[in-house]
Amino acid sequence: MKLPKRSKQHISESNSYKLFQSKIPNNWIIRETTERDYGIDCYLELVNENNDLTGELVLIQLKSRQSIEWTTSDTYKISDIKISTTNYWNKFAVPVFIFLADIQAQEIYFLSVKFWIRRKFLEYSKQKKFPIEFEKDFIFNLTGGLDNFKLYFYYEHNRKQFENELIFFLSNLKYYKDFLSEHKSRDFQFGIESPDLIYFEAMHRNFEFLCNYLYIPFTIPSLSKIKAESEKKFGAELYYELYEQDIAELVENFQHLTSTITTCLKIFFDVEAEYWITKNLTVFNYLNNIGEDGSLPY
């Protein structure tokens, strides 16, 4: 008597899903989808150490192999993903990750789709075959791989704001330099007028975000701390929130961070050169032509 047989593909999908479930932190949430034919197998919601629901979502595509045969350079390439599926992933406003399960080794590896697209943007732009290459170091586990995954998640999660802050930083480099130079030499007792205070707060926010995104130590106190210290020095009854002395004391730190951020951005652009040359050649050229001493291109 003939009976239905479960396909090897379905068995493989179930095994990879079970392995994926076993690897994620217990307090994270897997949200299943009702439609799985369009390149998304489930949603993953990150929960922080306090078990707060953050609303931070990752779209997950699961792939599996009975056994992964890594190359001598510890990479493994998948070439059977349709370009239409990659385009679909690239359209999402939230990060999309592919997880590759090694069933025999009971290990799972991850790759950020948009990160890979930007690194191989010229090949992706041809809209033909676009292989995905995993690295053995990008293993997903609770002993270190999880932190690496979160790093790449936040890299994508904050990407749109990063590109906005990047343009703001580059377009203000000259004005930052002039602003800091002017406020370094003024009378310390003068109060900071509202237009300059608003600009200083925007500059502070811009530097803080870029430092955090690029993993640069941010050596400037928070705005609230700067204002609190100013109140102690000059008195709460005075009119101004900040005084010239408050900014003058931070000038050297800002100047040093300007150089550090610029250097890191140059390295960052080297990795994503294909993407930036295509997306915004003007920005790419401008950044590459900033001198090692911080001198700006004409």
Rank of each mutant, 00 (worst) to 15 (best):
R31C: 00
T34E: 05
R36L: 01
D37H: 04
D37L: 06
D37G: 15
Y38W: 09
G39C: 08
G39E: 08
C42E: 01
Y43A: 02
L44G: 14
L44Q: 00
L44M: 12
E45D: 08
V47P: 13
V47D: 14
N50K: 15
T54S: 12
T54Y: 10
T54V: 07
G55D: 12
V58A: 15
L59C: 10
I60D: 00
I60Y: 02
L62I: 01
R65A: 14
Q66F: 07
W70D: 08
T71G: 02
S73A: 14
D74F: 06
T75Q: 13
K77L: 09
K77M: 13
S79P: 04
S79T: 11
S84Q: 10
S84G: 06
S84L: 13
S84F: 10
S84I: 05
Y88W: 09
Y88A: 11
P95W: 07
V96H: 00
F97W: 07
F99L: 03
I103T: 08
I103Y: 06
Q104T: 14
E107F: 04
Y109C: 07
Y109G: 06
L111E: 03
L111F: 01
K114H: 03
K114C: 00
F115Y: 10
F115E: 09
F115S: 11
I117N: 03
I117G: 08
I117Q: 03
L122Q: 06
L122F: 12
E123R: 11
S125N: 07
K126A: 05
K126Y: 05
K128A: 05
F130W: 03
P131W: 10
P131D: 01
I132S: 05
I132V: 15
F134C: 11
F134V: 03
E135W: 01
K136T: 09
K136G: 07
D137T: 13
I139E: 05
N141D: 15
T143N: 12
F149N: 12
L151R: 06
Y152W: 02
F153H: 13
F153G: 04
E156C: 08
H157L: 05
N158K: 12
R159M: 06
Q161E: 13
Q161Y: 11
Q161D: 10
F162N: 02
N164W: 00
E165V: 06
L166P: 14
L166H: 06
I167L: 15
F168A: 04
F169K: 05
L170C: 15
S171I: 12
N172R: 12
